[in-house]
Structures are given as C-alpha cells and as structure tokens.
C-alpha cells in the first residue's frame, strides 16, 4: 500500500516534468522547476469572470482533477508479494498478511471502472466551457465533449478484444492472462486493437493531433480560456494525469503490465526483488508511452473538426468493431 501511495505522489510530479525539457534555472537541470511553477500558480491572482456561473465555475476544475486521479486506485503497480513474512512489523501490523498486492483496491471490474471514471471527466471540460460564459470557452467545451463521446466508443470497442482473450475485467487478471498466454504480450494478437486504442487515447486526452478543444490559434485556449491561477493549474494537472492514465491502460492491456519475460528465473516470483524489478519495468514502459506523447506533439499537425469526426465515426469505430468480430471468431475456434 505504501509503495503504491509513494508511486502516486511520484506520478503527479512526473506528469509535470514530462512536458518540460527546457527549464534549467531552478535547481540542478531544472528539477525543481515544477515546484516553482506550482508556487507561481498558487500565488497568482485568481480572476473570476464577472458573468460566469460561479458554482459550476468552481466545480469544473475539481471534477476534472478528481476524475483524473480516481483511476489510480485500481492500477496494478506490481506483482503480489507472497514470500515475505511480515510479522517483524511493530504493533502486530503484519499479522495475518500473507499476500501483499501492489494495488490499492482490487476491483473485479477494473477495466470498466477506469473507462467509467474517465468518461465522467468530460463534465469537467464541458462545464468549464459553459460556466465561463465566453464564446471561445463554449466552443472549446462543445468540441471537446463531442470529441470525447465519439472516441470513447472506439476506445471501448478496442479494449473488448483484450478482454475476450483474457476472459476477465480485472486489470491484474489481464496481466496474469498475458503471462500464461503463448504470446506473452497481447499487442501481438491484438495489434489492430492496440493501434485503435492508441489513437482513441490521444483523442480522449485532447492531445495533438486531436487537441481541437484547446486549439490556440483558433480558440485562444479553449475551455480554460477564462481560468487563471490555481484553477488553471488543476486543469493542467488533470490533463497530464489523464495522459498517465491512458499510458497505464496501454501498458496493462497490451504490453503485459509489470511482467518482464524471464525474470522468474532470476528471482523467485513473489519475492521483494522480483516485485521491485517488475515495478521498475512497469514505470519504464509507461515512461516510454509518455515520451511517445510528447514526440507526437512535436511532430504532427492538427486535424480539422469535420476530419476528426469523420475519422472517428467512419474509420476508427468500424475498424475496432471488425477487430472485435475477428477476435470472437478466433477465440471460438481456439476454444472448440
């Protein structure tokens, strides 16, 4: 549990740092830059637009950040530790603990939980756009909610293939299913699903090339045009935490989560070094995805809105559904 919480704290910092390679004045190599930024955000004047709908204006950033942070409780950060005797802990804390899963809450329907919470995250953006009472914000909010509704379908459909292969909705269960499957990683049988998921994930997090809701050149800054200081910081954090969330989903569903092939021969499965190495591997895979995000942001131009909708509904969704049907057929013949 403590490991998981430390990771949670680290993740937020990491999400901050990823976008910034430039700063090098605060601390050695600029490692303290995010803290300086945060301090600035806190100390800045908090402007509230005169015509805004106050209550919803305050509610929106809270909703956005809460929905971004909630999925962390179901992430499988590492394998279950089973071989350690915890009775050395004081006050009888370790009594009766034989298994220590590196997950905060093990939910039977983990995949659905993450999907549900991220879909609620749309409210943050839509309400922010509406309550600011500014046309740029409203345009950004409308665009963003339309985009997120459209791409959620493709995202859900692309996950279905993995769920069918694994036969469970539990995130840890999916990882164990990948370990026991002949492919090791589900990216090999589910390459179509993976590509669709990746594209939909870019759209869900409003990143380039799908960052229409916050297209600077057209809409000033989209839904958070009217937000300043700490409230803007909350939106900013929510966006980066969302990036982290979809990276985790990608890694868990398609890249085997914390599993490192061949590690079981070096360390005993269930021991602490095994868990530690797996955990580092997990973080490493996520960092690779976060790097991919920034890479894509640096290279690709932005879509036009009708192109975005056409692409989502007429290409991505049919491909994802075709992948589901293909997987059904394959799974049926494998089982019979």
């Amino acid at each position: 549990m403590i490991v998981a919480y430390t990771v949670l704290a680290e993740r937020k910092v990491l999400g901050w740092i990823q976008g910034r390679i430039g700063p090098n004045r605060v601390g050695p190599w600029g490692v303290l830059q995010p803290f300086a930024d945060l301090l600035k955000f806190i100390l800045k004047e908090d402007l509230v637009p005169d015509k805004s709908t106050k209550f919803i204006y305050f509610l929106a950033p809270l909703v956005a950040l809460t929905c971004a942070l909630l999925p962390i409780v179901v992430y499988p950060f590492g394998p279950t530790i089973t071989t350690v005797d915890w009775s050395f802990l004081p006050y009888g804390l370790g009594d009766g603990i034989t298994r220590l899963p590196l997950t905060i809450a093990q939910i039977d329907v983990g995949v659905l939980f993450v999907l549900a919470i991220t879909s609620v995250g749309v409210y943050g953006i839509a309400l922010a756009g509406w309550s600011s009472n500014s046309k740029y914000s409203l345009m950004g909010g409308l665009r963003s909610s339309a985009q997120m509704i459209s791409y959620e379908l493709a995202m859900g459909a692309s996950i279905l293939g993995v769920v069918m292969l694994a036969g469970t909705l539990d995130l840890n269960g999916i990882i164990y299913a990948q370990i026991t499957s002949p492919f090791r990683w589900f990216i090999i049988p589910q390459i179509i699903g993976f590509v669709v998921f990746l594209i939909a994930a870019f759209a869900e997090t409003n990143r380039v090339p799908f960052d229409l809701p916050e297209a600077e050149t057209e809409l000033v800054a989209g839904f958070h045009t009217e937000y300043s200081a700490l409230k803007f910081a909350l939106f900013f954090m929510a966006e980066y935490v969302n990036m982290f969330t979809v990276s985790v989903m990608c890694v868990v569903l398609f890249l085997g989560g914390w599993y490192v092939p061949g590690l079981g021969r070096i360390f005993e499965p269930g021991s602490i070094p095994y868990a530690a190495v797996s955990h580092v591997a997990f973080i490493g895979k996520i960092c690779a995805f976060l790097f991919l995000y920034i890479w894509v942001r640096g290279t690709l131009p932005r879509f036009r809105f009708d192109q975005l909708m056409n692409f989502g509904w007429k290409f991505l969704l049919p491909v994802a559904l075709g992948n589901v049907i293909l997987t059904i057929i394959v799974v049926y013949f494998l089982n019979s």
Partner: peptide, 11 residues
C-alpha cells in the same frame, strides 16, 4: 448514465 446519457443531455 453519468458518462453517456447525461453528457448527451448537457451537450
């Protein structure tokens, strides 16, 4: 409900 229907309504 919260993720699909009400988002449509708010939209």
């Amino acid at each position: 409900y919260a993720g699909a229907i009400m988002v449509l309504v708010i939209f």
